[in-house]
C-alpha cells in the first residue's frame, strides 16, 4: 500500500492545467501539494455522486482535462456510474481511485469484498479506454506521465494506506479550506464562465 500523500506529491509534477477534484479522507492531502487552487474543485458528497458530478464537468468542459480522485467506498455506492462514464467516452476524463479498503471516515470498517474486488478490471470491462492498477509507488511514478496523456476515460486504481478517523464528525478539527461554493466560483472565474 502507498501513502496517499505520496500519490499526490508525484501527481502534482504531472498535473499541468488539469482541473483536480479531490474527495474522501485521502483526498484532503491534495491541498498540501496543489499549486493552482483556482483549478481545484470541491464537489461535496452525496452518497457517491461526486463521481457523477465530475463526469458532468468533463462533459461540460471538453477542452479541459478533468482529474477525479475518488474513493472506493463512494464508488461502490454507485458502481453503475462506470458504465455511464464509459458510455459517454469523455476523452478528457481521468478517474483515479484511492482504495484504502475501508470506510476510513467511520472508523475503518472494511468495504464489501475489500481485498478481492478488482476495480480496474471492472472499469475496463465497463468500457473505459484504459485501466491501471498500482500497489507500488515507483510503478505509479513511472506510469503517471503516460496516464495523463492517455485518451480518456482512463481509470487508475491505487492501493493506499487508510487514515482512519474515529472521533465524531462534529469534534474533528478541520483545516481552513474553501467550501464548495467558493471553489466553484473560483473555477468559473478562472475559466471565464458566468454564474448567471
Amino acid at each position: 500500500m502507498i501513502q496517499s500523500s505520496e500519490v499526490f506529491r508525484i501527481f502534482q509534477e504531472h498535473r499541468g492545467d488539469a482541473i483536480v477534484i479531490p474527495t474522501g479522507t485521502s483526498g484532503r492531502h491534495w491541498r498540501e501539494f496543489t499549486t493552482n487552487e483556482s483549478r481545484d474543485l470541491n464537489l461535496g458528497g452525496a452518497m457517491g455522486h461526486t463521481t457523477s458530478a465530475a463526469l458532468g464537468l468533463a462533459l461540460g468542459l471538453p477542452g479541459e482535462k478533468v482529474v477525479l480522485f475518488d474513493s472506493e467506498g463512494a464508488l461502490l455506492m454507485n458502481l453503475g456510474i462506470l458504465a455511464t462514464i464509459a458510455g459517454k467516452k469523455p476523452e478528457n476524463f481521468c478517474h483515479i481511485l484511492l482504495d484504502n479498503e475501508c470506510y476510513a471516515t467511520t472508523g475503518g470498517q472494511p468495504v464489501p469484498n475489500a481485498q478481492e474486488i478488482n476495480y480496474a478490471g471492472v472499469a475496463k470491462e465497463a468500457g473505459y479506454s484504459t485501466a491501471y492498477s498500482f500497489d507500488d509507488l515507483e510503478e505509479f511514478a513511472t506510469n503517471i506521465e503516460q496516464i495523463m496523456q492517455d485518451t480518456g476515460p482512463v481509470f487508475v486504481s491505487i492501493k493506499v494506506v487508510p487514515e482512519v478517523e474515529n472521533e465524531p464528525i462534529g469534534m474533528r478539527q478541520r483545516a481552513p479550506t474553501r467550501n464548495r461554493a467558493e471553489t466553484i466560483r473560483d473555477l468559473q472565474s478562472e475559466l471565464g464562465i458566468s454564474a448567471d
Binding site: 452525496a46 458532468g56 454507485n78
Partner: peptide, 18 residues
Amino acid sequence: ASREGETFAIALGLIIGG
C-alpha cells in the same frame, strides 16, 4: 445515466461548466 441519482450530480457538473 445508470441510476436516477446520477442525473442531478451530472447536471451539477454541467452547470459548473457553463
